[in-house]
Design a protein around this nucleic acid. Sequence first.
DNA 1: CCATCGATGTCCGAAAACCGCGAGCGCGCA
DNA 2: TGCGCGCTCGCGGTTTTCGGACATCGATGG
Lengths: 178, 178
Amino acid sequence: MAETLRFLIDKTDTPIGELVIIADRDGHLRAVDWTEHEGRMRQLLRLHYGAGGFELDPARNPGGLTETMRTYFSGRLDAIDALSVRTEGTPFQRDVWAALRDIPCGATVSYSEVAKRIGRPAAVRAVGMANGANPVGIVVPCHRVVGANGSLTGYGGGIERKRWLLDHESRVRRASTA
Amino acid sequence: MAETLRFLIDKTDTPIGELVIIADRDGHLRAVDWTEHEGRMRQLLRLHYGAGGFELDPARNPGGLTETMRTYFSGRLDAIDALSVRTEGTPFQRDVWAALRDIPCGATVSYSEVAKRIGRPAAVRAVGMANGANPVGIVVPCHRVVGANGSLTGYGGGIERKRWLLDHESRVRRASTA
DNA sequence: CCATCGATGTCCGAAAACCGCGAGCGCGCA
DNA sequence: TGCGCGCTCGCGGTTTTCGGACATCGATGG
């Protein structure tokens, strides 16, 4: 591939670890992950854009996205709802990720329910795979998908963080509706 | 892959069939093949630039390249020597293709000789593969590579055309040195 | 003299493995 | 009987692996 996409990279602290944020110059979010897993994230980028297909230039609060993430963590959960995400991925994955964004904050859904919603009720386990391949943690809320019996099953960032995020969302929601 | 390279496409007749010419907007030749094999050529482009990674806009004599090709066929063989080529391909393939351009017009070289020249004397058969994967026929003169015993072996455009091209080159050269 | 074989890089198709699931079943335990 | 736990197996998209084909040629053995 001849061309090179130039992305912007920033980092920020959260109560549960440092976050890496990748954005493009049009203000679209391209990837989000924990610094701890930056290697894995870069590998995913390589997969999607090619080995030399992109470059990461350090930046401060690109497109206001870093600030938006901080806002979410500080308690204004709906901050990330309007945020514009742009990713690659197979058609199936894109279907799944789109369905994830429709899960309202504070709610959880089972893998099979997601499968049903994208019209492939049997592709339950594949939904799990697609979840794991999600480049944009938190904003595409793969943490809101849990086992049919309510168990947390798995999370790329670690079950602990999944639990924290769900707590965070239900906690704040409870406070605001009270 | 996000963006799309916009190439220019033109066609022209030759004594041995119609030629397709793909150029970029900087005047570099990107691909050349016979109209008869346009499908195969597009597949190669897809391989190199991605399925939706490029687009072909019809153009007339882009970068003067069509005219240059016509000049070659009309007898000014060195017309294609200076012409700028830009292609993708693996490191090995690029080595091979570079070596091909060093074969002087009118001369022929064996596959094993090419292998020797790129420093991998044992990769003889692989040179054959790389030859077949050459996107830029004629200009990158894969037709000047023949069997160790002088037989024509193979040619993507058909042995007949290979023979014609070699005849053409030796004929004109003989005439000019006489 | 002729047939066979091995080395070499790349692509392609087929097949298998991999999983962030979930339903069904058997079993142990009151 | 009734419940819960854990094992097993089928599910389906994606990735990985593997084998074969090929624009050759020189060495070997019959």
